[in-house]
């Protein structure tokens, strides 16, 4: 384990044992039933005009959803904003240098990699901040933990976190199948024997929601 992770883990253990029940979790979401598609399925979009959010909107939405500063969402080598480094891959324009006056209009081969890079960076920051923030945690708050593990992966606090993320990122309530999937994810991660299953779950569920089609396109 890397030293900074060890320190984080120690802080986590200390905090979880010192004040295990003082932080209220987010309110329970109004979990929605998965709509019955029926024999002919859900109504399909007639136009199919999904648009990729692109560099500015994506970064702003990630930052707002996770309550972090826009310029802190992601940087390469700790110096260069991902927004600038990956601007063209994210569908941006670059008029002053290479003369790219209009966006290409299509996502590139590397676009998914960059989106995931930024989502992972944003989630890492939010999770690590919340793990040491105690009562001031913003998203991942009020989760009972036993050491590095979630005390109760089936508990209402986990559902509350899923709801909080869905509200923040997708501006809607979660569906029952989404909650079930993310609860199962907590158990699956713990079964891998990883050293920090609670942190890994937080990261994974954040990443899954942030990098979903619904969060990346509009």
């Amino acid at each position: 384990m890397r030293p900074e992770r060890l320190a984080l883990f120690a802080a986590l253990v200390a905090l979880s044992s010192a004040c295990p029940a003082k932080v209220d979790p987010p309110p329970q979401p109004m979990v929605m039933e998965v709509p019955d598609a029926g024999p002919s399925g859900l109504a399909r979009s007639a136009r199919g005009n999904l648009r990729f959010k692109g560099p500015e909107r994506l970064t702003t939405d990630f930052a707002t959803a996770l309550s972090i500063k826009t310029d802190e969402v992601c940087s390469e080598l700790g110096k260069y904003p991902c927004l600038s480094v990956h601007n063209v891959a994210l569908g941006g324009v670059d008029p002053y240098g290479p003369g790219l006056y209009e966006p290409s209009g299509v996502t590139a081969v590397t676009t998914p990699l960059v989106v995931e890079r930024i989502a992972w960076s944003a989630c890492s920051q939010r999770v690590d901040k919340d793990l040491v923030a105690g009562v001031n945690a913003v998203v991942f708050r009020g989760l009972p933990m036993t050491g590095p593990k979630l005390t109760n992966p089936d508990g209402p606090e986990v559902t509350a976190i899923v709801g909080e993320l869905t509200h923040r990122v997708l501006a809607r309530e979660p569906y029952t199948n989404e909650v079930a999937t993310y609860v199962k994810l907590a158990k699956d991660i713990e079964a891998t024997g990883t050293a920090e299953p609670a942190r890994e779950w937080m990261l994974s569920v954040c990443f899954a929601v942030l990098s979903s089609t619904e969060a990346v396109f509009y």
């Binding site: 929605m32 709509p35 598609a37 002919s40 859900l42 109504a43 399909r44 007639a46 136009r47």
Partner: peptide, 15 residues
């Protein structure tokens, strides 16, 4: 010719 296919969609008023 885009026909509206399927039943309903809980998130959007499709078409």
């Amino acid at each position: 010719d885009r026909a509206c296919e399927g039943t309903t969609n809980p998130q959007f008023t499709v078409c």
